[in-house]
Amino acid sequence: MSLLKVASVACIALTLGACQSLFQPSYRAPLEATRDASEVVQPGCTTADCPLVNIDTVHFASEPKLDALIEQRLLEMTRTTPGAPLPASLNAYREKFLRESGPRNSMYLQAKVREQHDGLVIIELSSYLDTGGAHGEPGRGFINYSRQQQKNLTLADMLRPGKEDAFWKAAQVAHNSWLISTRLSLEPDYVKSWPFQKTPNVALTYGAVVLKYPTTTIAPYAMGHVELQIPYARLDGIIKPELVPVRH
């Protein structure tokens, strides 16, 4: 019997989903990631406040598109002015930073796997630029990489058509819950000074849709990057159903 006939007989005996699994890759098994961490000090500097660059990232040998996307996003986080040209690579950025920076200047860049589920790889990105002032400039971001689509999912990719306003209303409910849980809702001046805002940082984690805010957007710098969570149940009819995690 030919291999084609064997496969056909097997498919008849199995459910459609099991049959399809014979020919399509399984996304339940997580991708293997390799950590790549280094800290380089300005060559020739011997003082305690030498400029340095710390890069802690991950590589995916089996997903070159994700690998390239991570480097691209980290390079975007090095910008100090909007629209500034990007370095050719992280190595090029490090060399330029160390060549041009003075004492007490440092840059930290990190990309880590926050979680993997349902064919999605959630990468959390962090940056911290210290130019010797009272405090540095931190940054955060997410990549929601779809292994099936081979791309990063934007908010538009996540939502049903015409549901963006409904999504941000659900986010505002999550913000109100956060104000109540932190008892900040009891401080009228705080609510007036730090009203709800949208954020570009949205992650499709297994437990909830996560929103992470840049510092000084909805809270003072000292409170860091506020994180809000929207349960998937509150996004019924708003988020695309195929992106709601399957409970195994």
Rank of each mutant, 00 (worst) to 15 (best):
A37L: 09
A18S: 01
A33M: 02
T215H: 02
I122P: 14
L3V: 11
G136F: 05
R183K: 11
E63T: 06
A203H: 07
Y27G: 08
G44W: 07
A33H: 01
Y213E: 12
D67S: 09
T217R: 14
Q72G: 02
G132L: 07
K96G: 03
R183E: 07
Q110C: 10
T131S: 13
D130R: 03
R160I: 11
T154V: 01
I143C: 02
Q197W: 06
K112M: 12
S146M: 01
A171F: 11
L179Y: 03
R234Y: 04
T182K: 07
L184C: 05
V226G: 04
A61G: 11
R140S: 01
E124R: 15
Q72D: 12
I143D: 00
L98I: 14
E115R: 08
V58D: 01
Y108K: 15
A208H: 13
Q150L: 00
Y232A: 09
A219G: 05
V246T: 13
P64C: 03
I239P: 12
P103E: 08
K65P: 03
A37M: 09
D118Q: 13
A13N: 02
A68T: 05
R73D: 02
V121S: 15
K5N: 07
I218M: 05
P82Q: 08
F97D: 04
R99K: 15
Y145H: 00
S8N: 03
A29R: 04
I123R: 12
V40K: 14
V246C: 07
I180P: 00
V6C: 02
F196R: 11
K198W: 04
P214F: 06
E100F: 12
M77R: 08
Q116H: 12
L52Q: 08
L69M: 02
A174V: 06
L179N: 03
E39R: 15
H59W: 08
L90C: 07
Q172R: 15
D49E: 03
G207L: 10
W194P: 09
M107E: 13
H175P: 03
M77V: 04
V173W: 04
E63A: 03
S126P: 01
P200V: 09
G83D: 05
K151P: 00
T47E: 07
A18G: 00
P241L: 13
M158V: 14
T217F: 02
Y27W: 13
L16I: 06
R35I: 07
V246Q: 14
I218L: 09
K163F: 06
F142I: 07
R28I: 12
